[in-house]
Design a protein around this nucleic acid. Sequence first.
DNA 1: CTTAAATGTCAGCGATCGCTGACATTCCCA
DNA 2: TGGGAATGTCAGCGATCGCTGACATTTAAG
Lengths: 95, 95
Amino acid sequence: MLIRTPADLGAVIRDRRKRLKLDQSTLAKRIGVSRQWVIDIEHGHPRAELALVLRALDALGIPLDADDQQMTSRGSARSAIDINAIVAKAKKSRT
Amino acid sequence: MLIRTPADLGAVIRDRRKRLKLDQSTLAKRIGVSRQWVIDIEHGHPRAELALVLRALDALGIPLDADDQQMTSRGSARSAIDINAIVAKAKKSRT
DNA sequence: CTTAAATGTCAGCGATCGCTGACATTCCCA
DNA sequence: TGGGAATGTCAGCGATCGCTGACATTTAAG
């Protein structure tokens, strides 16, 4: 599933936990956090600590993949000529 | 790239920023955070806020995918019989 | 070498983290 | 329907967040 918001993450974690038949206390111990933290993250807590989130995903066996390399730029894809670089340079050496 | 640690995330963000020819200040404005935050995250700051991290990835056009559904359990894969459920139940109804 | 941009460091501030422990509520078997 | 497990809520605490602004260092172009 694509993760766009803290709520998305909370849903993934909760679903996974249930699929594994774990209760919040047990999961909390595995991750090394308090039960309160598990409650908060499952509710989409937006300010959770990055490292704890990663540990939670690991404890649940959920790999997290960042599609770097991605061609997001609107317009023509993957050209041999790096337009961005050319424009950036042009802006600077404004003779 | 698989994200396992805050450092992994920092690397992905920095690489992507450079590929897009952005400096830290510009990226910070796009994300809506301070330049200090960008510096910290690129250095692998482990306690960064989840929501800000997600906004950063979005600003950089990096989709984040969580492989739920994954069969992580060691042992035989995807059986029709849910051993975990059976064991969990057995533990409870300890006659 | 000179210079400017980019990056990194530091300190101080208000806000919020995650933790604990007690209690309230909801689920769900038997 | 009764009762225990699971889940959710609250408050108070020390620790750390992310922010600002100034300054130091590194990088890159000329």
